Simulated assay, not measured.
Amino acid sequence: MWYNILHEVDHVSKLLQSPPVGIDVLQYEVGYVLKFLKEYRENGLSSAQTDARDMAEELEMPMVFPTTPGPKPKRQSPYEPQNPDPSLTVTPEEKFRRDVFLPLVNSAITGTSERFKLMETFHGLFGFIYRREEMKRAVESYTLKESCADIEKTLGDVDAEDLVREISAAVTAVPAKETTGLKILSYIYRNRLVELYPNLSIALRLMMTVPVTVASGERSSSRLKLIKTHLRSTMLQEQLSALAQISIEHEVTKSLDKDELIRAFSALKHRRVDF
């Protein structure tokens, strides 16, 4: 049972640690995991029994459910029936399902739902501008005005009426190859169209800069432990921040021309007097 559950959860866990993942993709994957868990709660015990039976046969072990001694029966009066009702007795399989299987799966469903509850709220707020198709669908279904009003009410950084006009224009004017919100935002800045789409650019920036998880922050704290050791106890905050940024953004650092940086640094620090 644990293998079947954790196999699905592990996929989302790895997805959470991926830097380029967006909330729209994560929302879909989490929804799939919740759907799987709910279906597994209804039909998963039989498949788990089949897998366990195969393992038991391979290991030459008996395939039986664990049983525990029940409470000592009470002494009955002569007027009560001596044989108990068979419908009131609980089989070991049903007891296992009630005491182990259902609490385990329900705990997984509850934990997953509570963990991503805030993500669902955020997706409900910005979901209509994640992709070009969502923007177009909001325009055609006449829900764009309501969605823009929710953003203005929640954030207060954009004007709802102007945002409606900008999204309606962007759906038609922006090239069709710009399919996602990130690509549309890059197109706006690349072609210097911020003055034409000021509210849309603000909404897209807010949507893109909200982190999916705190994994990046945790990695940054881990980097600090590697940089400021006991041998660097006199390091000041400015130098520590600079080294941490270089270490965190190591991919950008590798693309820089080190020789040009060294020449620029030496030109600022040399003590030769030019005659």
Rank of each mutant, 00 (worst) to 15 (best):
L6I: 03
V9H: 01
S13P: 00
K14P: 02
P19C: 01
I23V: 15
Q27H: 13
L37D: 10
R41L: 14
E42P: 01
S46T: 11
M55R: 15
F65L: 04
P69H: 04
P78N: 05
D85I: 06
P92D: 05
F96S: 12
T110Q: 03
S113P: 02
L118R: 10
G127C: 05
Y130C: 09
M135G: 04
R137H: 09
Y142P: 00
E146P: 03
D150S: 13
E152P: 01
E152Q: 14
L163W: 02
I167E: 06
A169G: 00
V171P: 00
T172S: 11
T172I: 13
A173C: 04
A176K: 10
E178N: 08
L182Q: 09
L185H: 11
I188L: 04
L193A: 06
L196G: 07
L196N: 13
P198K: 13
I202H: 03
T209P: 02
V212W: 05
E218K: 10
L226K: 13
K228M: 00
S233I: 14
Q237G: 01
S241N: 15
I246G: 06
V252P: 00
L261W: 04
I262S: 03
R263W: 03
R263L: 11
S266K: 12
A267K: 14
R271G: 09
R272A: 12
